[in-house]
Every structure is written in C-alpha cells, then in structure tokens.
C-alpha cells in the first residue's frame, strides 16, 4: 500500500530522554487517521516532526512517498495544511486579513478565502479583529487557514480543543467529510477516544512515546473481544449452573458478564439456565468501549 505519511524509526530526544521512540507511522491516502494517546504521550511532538517544526533525532519521514529533506520541504509544505497545539493568529488583524496572509504565501486564489470561511462557518465574523474572537472562533479560523490551498494532507493537533459541544460535533463532521469531498487525508490527534470512534478510519495509539497500536478502527474493536451479558431472575441458580458448566463469569452492574461463546454454546447454555430455573430476562452482546480497549492496550488507568 502507498502511504501519504510514512515514518520509519521516528525518534525525538530531549536532553537524552526519548519522548518519541521508534515510531513507524503509516497513514493511508484519503482517510481520517486518528492519532491517539494520553497527555504527554508524544502526539504533538510527532506531528511537529512531520512538519519540520522540530528536528528529528533519529529515523525518517516520507510524505507523499518522498523522503522529506531540506530541498523538498517547501513543496511538501505547499500541499500540507496544519493546525498545531493552539491556533496561530495575528490578533490585531481581522480574520480575513489573517487568511489573506496565508493565501498570499500559499499563492492560491483569493476566492478560496470565501470558500474556507463558509466551510468553517465564519463568514459573519471575518471582519472582526481576531483578538476579539472566542477560543472556538480562533480554532475555526485556524482550521480555515489549514484548509486554504486545498492541501492533500491536513495535520490537525487536537482541533476540537476549546469548542463547545455543538462546535465539536460540527468540526468532526467537517473532518469526516474532507476525504470524500476534497480527497484530503486528515491526520488528527486527540486524547478523547470517543471522538475517534466518530471520525477515524484508521487509528494509531501512542503511549510514552511508543506506537502501541496501528490499524483500521474496526480492527481496534475486533482487538477487544466482545462479552456476553446476562440478566437473570435468580442469580444464585445461574451462578451454580455456570460453575457446573465451567464458564467463568463476573458481576457487572447487576448483570452477569461472560466471555463470548460460540452461537451453539450460547444456545445450549441458555437452555440449561432456563431448565435450572434461573429465568433469563435478557441476553446481550456487550461491546467494549474504546476506553476499555485503550486501557487494556496501555495497561493504564485514570484520565485520558
């Protein structure tokens, strides 16, 4: 497969400490690639290395199949849009003037300014000084700047930071649409797992500077075996039967949770439970949340 972004052994050291370690990122074309990891995992550092904002300690980066070096830096930047850390803006200028600066430097037509303003719904605020914008509006302006010039690669570092729920939803939908509508590839980082469930086709998970998972989103879900949840009338009877059958189980929110069984095994077990007077109310397959998957991958609890 041809990847639009491919890194090999990408490493960043700060005074001897590896904050990004041997990362082999593989981002396919025209998709949304979610780059996830807890705070301080190395997401921003990795994205900054892709953009050449910070220098690589070890390894290499290829963008659009070309190894990035000093010579092709400008050509690559021309077809890349980015929003790193927090939105950049000249506060004493209006939103439109900010966009004009990017438009001039990227040498794209002035008409695109109106298009991107519309895309992020900022037409009404375009003539206000950016200093007076809310954080969400600045974030949208940053996104508009990144979209100027119809880049083939869009690198967004936590783009929904500071947006209200409606804004978050809107931006997610916009990101979701970009590959299909404009053929863009979006590499987007986030520490919110739920966010990725809604927009990513591929995910990469980084923890302590190391890439611990990278595949299709579905693969991440498959990675987590689903569980079977039972709600019964008589738990004591049910537990007795399960023990006799040699099936492990745990109590979760008042329900019994068992490992996933084959269909015929499930049918057999339900039959036995009914016969034994356990009284089955409900049988359901319980999908692990991305949160749980992540925790099992990283072996780490607490806030993400």
């Amino acid at each position: 497969m041809e990847y639009i972004v491919e890194t090999r052994g990408l490493t960043k050291r700060y005074s001897g400490k590896e904050v990004v370690k041997d990362v082999d990122l593989k981002v396919p074309r025209s998709c949304v690639y979610g780059f996830m990891g807890p705070n301080g995992a190395g997401k921003s550092t990795t994205l900054k290395m892709l953009l050449g904002l910070i220098h690589i300690s070890d390894g290499q980066v290829a963008i659009g199949g070309e190894k990035v070096n000093r010579k092709n830096r400008i050509a690559i930047l021309k077809s890349t849009g980015s929003l790193i850390e927090s939105p950049s803006y000249y506060g004493h200028l209006t939103g439109r003037e900010n966009l004009e600066i990017v438009q001039t430097l990227k040498k794209v037509s002035g008409k695109e300014i109106d298009q991107v303003l519309k895309l992020v719904r900022m037409e009404e605020q375009q003539n206000k000084k950016v200093r007076e914008y809310s954080l969400g509006m600045k974030q949208r302006l940053g996104l508009a700047e990144a979209l100027l010039g119809n880049p083939s690669l869009l690198i967004l570092d936590e783009p929904t930071n500071g947006l209200d729920p409606a804004g978050i939803q809107e931006i997610r939908e916009l990101i979701r649409e970009l590959p299909r509508r404009m053929g863009m590839t979006v590499l987007v980082s986030s520490h919110l797992l739920g966010e990725m469930d809604q927009m990513a086709d591929y995910v990469g998970i980084i923890n302590h500077g190391q890439l611990i998972f990278q595949d299709k989103l579905e693969a991440l879900h498959e990675h987590s075996r689903d569980n079977l949840r039972l709600r019964v009338m008589n738990q004591t009877a049910a537990l007795h039967i399960l023990k006799r059958e040699g099936i492990s189980c745990a109590l979760k929110e008042g329900d019994l949770e068992l490992p996933r069984l084959a269909d015929d095994e499930t049918a057999q077990l339900i039959g036995r439970l009914c016969e034994g007077g356990a009284g089955v109310y409900r049988v359901e397959e319980k999908q692990k949340s991305l949160e749980e998957i992540f925790l099992s991958l990283t072996g780490r609890r607490g806030s993400l």
Partner: peptide, 11 residues
C-alpha cells in the same frame, strides 16, 4: 499567539 508554528509551516 503561536505564530511561530504558522510562520514556519508556510511554503
């Protein structure tokens, strides 16, 4: 306002 990021990622 983080303009270094945008200054250095322009072509």
């Amino acid at each position: 306002n983080y303009n270094w990021n945008s200054l250095m990622t322009m072509p």
